[in-house]
Design a protein around this nucleic acid. Structure first.
Lengths: 142, 142
DNA sequence: CTTAATGCAAACCGTTTGCATAGAT
DNA sequence: ATCTATGCAAACGGTTTGCATTAAG
């Protein structure tokens, strides 16, 4: 049984073709953050038959099962990534859209402290830095 | 001339009734993060005549002019706040929706460092912590 | 007077849902 | 055989846009 099937099973989700295909896409796409539409297009290009509704349903289920993370870089649409053990946050280039991942102990620790000072217990956080990537800094505006 | 009118003028925006009213709402609502619909309802209650389209247009313009900040706590809709000099981030209670603001030097500084390590120059960031506020920690689940 | 801002309603776009069919266990 | 997952198309909710009207400078 493939690793993906194993993950699905462990999560208590039936091993169906659409689920496997979507997770395969996300796996092969690691670090690139695909939107539902991206996934749809990629599957169509591969000649797969799938409806958008299924993609959203599968992504939502997998998110709840902890297999997938939903992110929101631009306000208008969600992007998804396969969930891996190590937590990370993101830096997005505002010009070309390139995304880098990072993880910083100092920040993570301070977040806990800041929250507890405010009387909160933290369950989660989202942090996105926006700026210009190395490439775009050295490229003139369009 | 009111302070709001002055801000608008400085931003190069004509001083129109809808703009003034919307900024007044945001000003009186400081720290409470109103959505476009919230603003619409508040204005209706006051017997003002205004269209949603105008609210969105005004908010977008004011955002671009730096008078207003757009935030996204839940994925589905934007909330807005009057922009004040001091930058801050947010902690949101996942149960009751209560929002606290905070600003942490350590985190801000590390963000710069982390970005520059990745070759980025930072222009902006969004950071939202999600958790349980003091009140909800001491209140049993519904 | 001239040009930009508003209101209205229709369009939009990403996402969700109802329902009949296909598929997994 | 049973019950869940899928595909399709229609619905949805927040936001945007086209256009005629109104108001600001």
């Amino acid at each position: 049984m493939s690793e993906i099937s194993a993950k699905l099973k462990e999560a208590g989700l039936k091993i169906t073709l659409p689920r496997v295909k979507i997770l395969e896409i996300l796996e092969s796409n690691q670090g690139q953050h695909a939107s539902a539409e991206d996934i749809y297009k990629m599957l169509m290009e591969r000649g797969e038959e799938i409806g958008v509704a299924t993609i959203y349903r599968v992504l939502t289920q997998c998110e709840q099962a902890g297999l997938v993370t939903r992110l929101q870089f631009e306000g208008d649409r969600s992007v998804f990534e396969i969930r891996v053990d190590d937590h990370h946050d993101h830096i997005v280039c505002v010009r070309c859209g390139h995304v880098e991942e990072f993880n910083d102990e100092v920040i993570e620790k301070r977040q806990q402290e800041v929250a507890s000072e405010a009387g909160f217990t933290i369950e989660d956080h989202s942090m996105v830095l926006y700026g210009l990537c190395e490439n775009c800094q050295n490229t003139p505006e369009v």
